[in-house]
Computed example of a mutant assay.
Amino acid sequence: MIEILEKYIPQASVVPVFELIQTHNVHLKIVNQRVTRHGDYRRMPNGQHQITVNTSLNKYRFLITLIHEIAHLEAFEKYGRLIKPHGIEWKRTFQILMLPFLRPEVFPNQLLPLLARHFKNPTASSDTDATLSLALKQFDPENDKNYIFEIPLGGSFRLYNGRIFKRGKKKVKRYECVEIATGRVYLFNPNAEVEFLK
């Protein structure tokens, strides 16, 4: 397992993450990219804990995602299955689990202040923190995707499923976008990755 973890997370985090996996008897599955999520946790019918994480994540996002899912496991074990998945119990658990990793041996110096701010009140996805998401993206392999906020007003873009939209105005935190084929309006997170149609 250590050899596998070395491929996906920063070297200084491998041993403590391995210990967390062993302590909780986690079956870690590294899977092909899913568009809708970076990872997930589920308790299997046999009682074993299964965590899946996308193979395509850069090593910093992979580590954050893995600890996010282990926090679900710990929070459910400690507080019971009736808690909100991303409620206060999960937030506190996630903060405690991430704290030992928020150091320059694990994350680049430019990410540390953004991570410290994010983990004061962690959200259900690091993607909803636009500043952190953009900072993490610089460690991704090159791709032809843009964030919604980078698309000009009135510009068109395509989703992974082929649907085409025109970007509208920002409404509080999200952007109103009109699907070209149906005329229906949808709200998009500013840092949703899409293909800009020039």
Rank of each mutant, 00 (worst) to 15 (best):
R158F: 04
C177L: 05
L159T: 12
E179I: 04
G155H: 04
I164Q: 07
F165D: 03
R158Q: 13
C177N: 09
R158S: 12
K169D: 06
G183N: 01
T182E: 02
Y175V: 08
S156D: 08
R158E: 15
S156L: 08
I164L: 04
R158V: 13
K173R: 10
R184Q: 12
G183T: 01
G168K: 04
L159Q: 12
K173I: 03
G155L: 08
R184W: 03
Y160H: 13
E179D: 08
G154A: 02
V178K: 13
Y175C: 09
L159S: 14
G183D: 01
K173C: 02
Y160T: 14
L159I: 03
N161M: 12
A181V: 03
K171I: 15
F157V: 06
R167V: 08
V172C: 07
K170M: 11
K166Q: 11
R167K: 15
G154F: 02
R167I: 04
K173E: 04
V172I: 11
G183Y: 02
T182D: 02
K169V: 10
T182P: 00
E179T: 09
K170L: 15
G162H: 13
V172P: 02
V178Q: 14
G155W: 05
L159R: 14
L159A: 10
G183I: 00
S156F: 08
K170Q: 15
R184N: 09
G155R: 11
E179C: 13
K173Y: 04
E176A: 09
F165L: 02
N161Q: 12
K171N: 13
K173Q: 07
Y160C: 08
K171V: 15
E179Q: 15
F165M: 05
S156K: 15
S156V: 01
I164E: 09
F157I: 06
R174G: 06
V172Y: 07
I180R: 05
G183S: 07
Y175I: 07
Y160R: 10
I164V: 14
K171Q: 14
Y175K: 08
F157A: 03
R163T: 09
L153W: 01
G168V: 03
E176V: 05
R174A: 09
I164W: 00
K169Q: 10
Y175F: 15
I180E: 10
L159D: 07
Y160D: 11
R184F: 01
L159C: 11
K170S: 05
A181F: 02
L153Y: 11
C177K: 06
K171H: 13
G155T: 08
K171T: 12
C177M: 07
K170D: 07
F165W: 04
G155K: 10
N161L: 10
F157H: 01
R174T: 11
N161W: 09
Y160S: 15
R163K: 15
F165C: 02
T182N: 00
G162A: 12
F165Q: 01
N161F: 07
G183F: 00
R174I: 08
C177D: 06
R167S: 02
T182L: 01
I180S: 06
L153K: 13
K170H: 04
R158I: 11
N161V: 10
P152V: 12
E179L: 07
E179P: 05
F165S: 00
I180L: 14
E176K: 14
E176W: 07
L153M: 12
K166L: 04
E179A: 09
F157K: 04
K170W: 04
G183C: 03
G154M: 01
E176I: 06
G155C: 07
R184M: 05
K169Y: 00
C177A: 14
L159F: 06
P152F: 06
K166T: 13
F165P: 03
